[in-house]
Design a protein around this nucleic acid. Sequence first.
DNA 1: ACGCCATGTGGACGGTGTTCACATGAGCGG
DNA 2: CCGCTCATGTGAACACCGTCCACATGGCGT
Lengths: 208, 208
Amino acid sequence: MSSDSTAEPSRPYHHGDLHAALLETALDLAREGGPAAVSLREVTRRVGVSPAAAYRHVRDREALLRAAAREVQARMVVPMRERRARSDGPADAAARALDRLRGVGLGYIDFALAEPGWFATALLGAGDPPDEGPAHAAPFLELLAALDDCVETGVLSPSRRPGAEFSCWSAVHGCAELLVRGPLRGADAETVRTIAEKVVDDIIAGIR
Amino acid sequence: MSSDSTAEPSRPYHHGDLHAALLETALDLAREGGPAAVSLREVTRRVGVSPAAAYRHVRDREALLRAAAREVQARMVVPMRERRARSDGPADAAARALDRLRGVGLGYIDFALAEPGWFATALLGAGDPPDEGPAHAAPFLELLAALDDCVETGVLSPSRRPGAEFSCWSAVHGCAELLVRGPLRGADAETVRTIAEKVVDDIIAGIR
DNA sequence: ACGCCATGTGGACGGTGTTCACATGAGCGG
DNA sequence: CCGCTCATGTGAACACCGTCCACATGGCGT
């Protein structure tokens, strides 16, 4: 009788940490179905709590979505770093910096392809309120670091550094959207790979 | 007074062309408020007809949105062509081709900035069903033509032509999203202009 | 032990998309 | 000119959504 949804025998009358549970469930829903699939009612239903309970921990559906977006952004950099760790780097520092920049771009696109629902959610991260600074989403920081690395190793001239992050982010993000929701959605894997690599290589060539 | 579109005292018992009226109203709503603001009930309310009436002319809300998206795409190229017509082009053919390519990119971004609601709607254009070919949205065609022009005038090597459209579209579309919904939303006009021009110039440099 | 107050509940309101049986009238065949 | 037909529009209904309210509950500090 007392068996509840989360399989805990002693039902937490006051559910230990509802905020975390809501966020996690929102992430589950967003993963398959994107932000549109995240309804406060469905989230609370899955957690096993009344819809109104959510409002003790979250201002609105929008706020929950923004929190999920920030979490997705954080998770987005994980594969990027794994890729960098895996990369066999015996080459010189310059080549490594370039490869790192390439890896950030391809990692971004790969994430979008592997997790389209999450990717669509990630953009809602920056809230209109003075949430946080300008743009310190995790993937963006990764890009900044890779670009700075390029400058340090002489791959990128310091005079061409300013604004390069916007060009790179634009190309890579635009490519991801093109492949995930745009006219190229559903293309075969090989085509996708070819295009992704070309876009990344083209923009890197362009900013140098 | 008598012949009109919407405000005729003699109420059209069967409303001459509901489909067109729905589409136009959907465009109005999308213009301010984006796709989320397009509700079938509000559309029908504004047209002065019952909600169910819409279903005689449109499969779903989704279908109406897709129709609106296609219309927006068509309207998007108008400013692009005006810009090209305005451009004083005494320079040689090569410089003109390059300027045309630049104009397509900047026109795309300008449209996104001038009509963010419509821009957000435009992406829903390609339906999952084999709606139409791969990607013949009007702005994309404009880009293809500009690129071909570059090849013809020798600005772009034919060997570098394949796939260039994807790189360009990615950079420009990504930039538009960056400026409209992304972390740079709300930046001052000068910054916006600087970034837009840099992104366009960088990607053009990259594909050459 | 008691009471405060954060937390969770049930119900309500107004909004949405969508479908149904039904009404209406425009245009056509006779 | 009449009457039938069928596309078009209606009203009500269903299921869902976000959100707020007055109220219940019980964990925890005093």
